[in-house]
Amino acid sequence: MDSRSILAEIPRLRRYARALLGDRAAADDLVQDTLERAWSRIDQWRVGSDLRAWLFGIMHNLRVDQLRRPPPPTRPVEEGDCDLPTRPTQTDGLELKDLESALNQLPDEQREVVLLVALEDMAYADIAAMLGIPAGTVMSRLARGRERLRQIMAGLAETPASRLRVVR
């Protein structure tokens, strides 16, 4: 593992983190933590194995750890206290914004699989190995996530959602 191959993976890590968290700064924080943990566990890296899968796996585990931990104490920022940098959204199509908010409505575990398949075109088996879950679970999360997303986008989220919950 060398710096150049790590550098080559950063854009993909950022994209996935960005889609997963829906927040640019938080995504880059997650990528930074991921790389830091990767270097601290470099002895676990097996030469010749898939660097991308390894880094994505580290990112997933970090995210799981973060979700388990209680959020750090924060003080709400009053409106006008400071100018918070925000992502420019003028060019976003209405539909894409809807898609983003729809994605955010998915449970984490479903969003994760949907995004890995969509953005990384990762094989189901590879996702299963990376997340440490059975292949069947990957498939059911993907199916539920995609269908839920479809329903939300079609404006049909309410009724089918309750039906889906029964299935789960």
Binding site: I10, P11, R14, R15, A19, L96, E100, L119, R146, L149
Partner: peptide
């Protein structure tokens, strides 16, 4: 849906690191 997700986040790949 898959294409739209790629379209939505695709630009992140080209952003300077």
């Amino acid at each position: 849906q898959k294409q739209a997700i790629n379209h939505l986040y695709g630009a992140t790949l080209d952003e300077p690191i």
